[in-house]
Design a protein around this nucleic acid. Structure first.
Lengths: 244, 244
DNA sequence: AATATTAACTGGTAGTGACCACATGACAAC
DNA sequence: GTTGTCATGTGGTCACTACCAGTTAATATT
């Protein structure tokens, strides 16, 4: 069994949460069963109840456990499809489904985007953004057509090499420009493929597509990216977990 | 200004959260501006920092504010589209968009559903469920075709009257059967309308539809309802907020 | 046997005190 | 001017303590 170090860069509650999570993932604690009470854990790990509760809070938010006042804390029964409702990049999304992500870069250009994109990015009418167009692949099959509009200064460049090596655009934003995605608003709707889109996605013109439009905010809640992804209707399904 | 009662059924942190929320909604605290520090609020309201933090935790989770370590706590700038990522019924969804929800009840029947529905509801092969078919309206225009499969005992009946008076199915589940929806897994994908679906939705056969499939869990994390909604592609757009 | 009471659990709320980690601006040193 | 140091203010973590609020089962009462 792992132990908890009293002084570390990693908070105690976080370490504890991982220990408990482990017990669930490894099956030591079965779904629907009661886990030790907060007072019991307090004694067992010699950690204050404050910290115990903080750890359990995290696990509850992540959907591993649920609490019932007066009865106890239980392991969630659901074969948890990890981190739905979480902000993920296309690559992360694919990896979560055990599909190998890939991409064909169509273009990287600095230009003035359509009016509606400027508005959402809170930019003046003549501003320029970096547009990145890619066909996204899953296990080498076209899944979606992705167009990103990035609010970046003129000297902030993203190259083909950046994209090819990093794979994920979020990685680049974080490492190269210190932009950390924290939140996004997304809409989903249905459209039909234009001939151009159809040829890129290797489907028939007029085939149904799932259109996702996502406005991404950085750590200061400023919009930094507007992304459109046209998903092939026959090869993609959107998953979320909702809570009340 | 409101005051905080020391002893009440309503927790202090909850009352405080509402007071702070009010200040944001009424515009007293403008977006992006710093709100008083936790120590300042502690002094101002004569509440311990523990409780202050608990209130702020809630507001942060709801997206009203965000914190930056070492800098302070700020009001979120976003014209918050309330409670996305939250579990809502069709009626609640519509009301949140300022659209009047409505329904045409097609049928209410007790029957054995398709195999896949039984499996998701964790029922044996011969089990029966209550199926409710409705055309859902928004401002009197057909928006979606909704089919609910409810895991209910034989004596647990839902009548047309129940549905017509309550409006929301969730209301009925809660009031009549003490089933409280707490969580759901949802998938979204694209399909094309069959002639039958098209006629009910008043669109052309083959028109693109957004198909939502939702498995709803009760307070004990048991599946209680499986709902399919076929949304008209031209009249419905799905909204969510994602966080990281 | 049925019903009411109670004791002993559970998680939930609240206060106090202490210190850590990060950000920032004032100020000293160069 | 530039750079480095440091004091101060912010949120983050943690311990200890106390009591409130549901749940349950044993027990007493009828």
């Amino acid at each position: 069994m792992s132990t908890i170090n009293p002084y570390d860069v990693v908070p105690k509650y976080y370490q504890l949460a991982n220990i408990l999570k482990q017990k669930i993932l490894e099956g030591e604690w079965q779904p629907r069963t009661l886990i030790p009470s907060e007072r019991a854990l307090e004694a067992q790990y010699n950690i204050s109840r404050t910290t115990i509760r903080q750890a359990i809070d995290h696990l509850e938010k992540q959907g591993f456990i649920y609490r019932e006042h007066g009865r106890g804390t239980f392991v969630s029964p659901q074969k948890l499809q990890k981190g739905l409702q979480e902000l993920t990049s296309f690559s992360e999304d694919m990896l979560g489904r055990n599909i190998q992500p890939g991409q064909i870069i169509q273009s990287i250009e600095r230009l003035t985007p359509p009016e509606d994109v400027l508005q959402r990015l809170e930019l003046p009418p003549d501003a320029k953004v970096l547009r990145v167009e890619r066909v996204r692949l899953g296990d080498d099959i076209p899944i979606g057509l992705q167009t990103s509009f990035l609010k970046l200064a003129e000297h902030q460049i993203i190259t083909r090499e950046d994209l090819e090596t990093a794979g994920s655009l979020y990685r680049i934003l974080q490492d190269k420009f210190n932009i950390i995605p924290t939140e996004a608003d997304e809409t989903l709707e249905v459209t039909l493929a234009t001939p151009h889109e159809a040829s890129l996605l290797q489907i028939k013109p007029g085939a149904p597509l799932l259109l996702s439009e996502r406005l991404l905010y950085n750590q200061n809640r400023e919009p930094v990216e507007f992304v459109k992804i046209l998903y092939r209707g026959d090869r993609y399904r959107y998953l979320i977990r909702l809570t009340r």
